[in-house]
Amino acid sequence: MTVSREDELFEIDMELLKLLDERIQKGAIARHDVDEAAYIQKLTSIYDGAAPGELVEKLIQSLFNESGKGRDHGAERRMLYSRESKRSDTIVEVNGHEIGGPGTVNIFGPCAVESYRQTAEVAAMLKEKGLGIIRGGAYKPRTSPYDFQGLGEEGLRILSRIREEYGLAVISEITAPGHVELARPHLDIFQIGARNMQNFELLKAVGRSQTPVLLKRGLSATVEEFLYAAEYILAEGNPRVILCERGIRTYEKSTRNTLDISAVPLLKQATHLPVMVDVTHSTGRKEIMAECAKAALAAGADGIMAEVHPEPDAALSDSKQQMSFTEFEDFYTNLP
Rank of each mutant, 00 (worst) to 15 (best):
I192F: 03
A263C: 13
I12K: 00
Q322R: 05
Q269A: 14
T258P: 07
G284Y: 14
G178A: 04
F331Y: 15
P102K: 15
D313F: 03
P212A: 10
G96I: 04
I40H: 09
A169G: 15
L215E: 11
A30R: 07
E76H: 13
A51Q: 12
T104K: 09
E84Q: 15
E327M: 03
K86R: 15
E307G: 08
L203E: 07
D72Q: 13
E153F: 12
R184T: 06
I60W: 00
D278K: 05
E327K: 07
I133G: 00
E15I: 09
A51S: 11
K58G: 00
E231I: 13
E165Y: 01
P310L: 01
Y166V: 01
S209Q: 06
G27I: 12
G70S: 01
E287F: 04
E327H: 06
F328E: 10
L297R: 13
G178Y: 05
A293T: 07
G101D: 11
S88Q: 15
R117I: 00
D33Q: 07
R208G: 14
E154W: 02
V92K: 02
L297F: 14
I261P: 08
L234P: 01
T44C: 10
A51N: 04
Y139G: 01
L202W: 07
R142N: 08
I24S: 04
I40F: 08
E165G: 02
L126K: 11
Y47N: 08
G100P: 05
A138E: 02
G68A: 09
V308I: 15
M14E: 14
V105M: 06
P212F: 06
S209N: 04
G303Y: 02
H32T: 08
E165P: 01
E22C: 04
F328K: 11
Y81W: 15
F325G: 02
G68E: 04
L159Q: 12
K69S: 15
H73S: 15
Y139E: 03
G247M: 13
A37N: 11
A230N: 13
L214E: 03
A270D: 11
Q269N: 12
R31W: 12
G247D: 13
R285P: 00
L259F: 09
Y146S: 13
N257S: 03
K294Y: 10
P110G: 05
Y332F: 15
A112C: 14
P274C: 06
R285L: 14
E153V: 14
A221I: 11
K320S: 12
L202T: 02
R249S: 08
T2M: 14
K18W: 08
L227T: 06
L17K: 11
T250R: 08
P310F: 03
E164Q: 13
G96L: 03
P141R: 02
E121A: 09
G100W: 07
F190C: 11
K294V: 14
S4R: 08
Q25P: 00
V275N: 00
T44E: 10
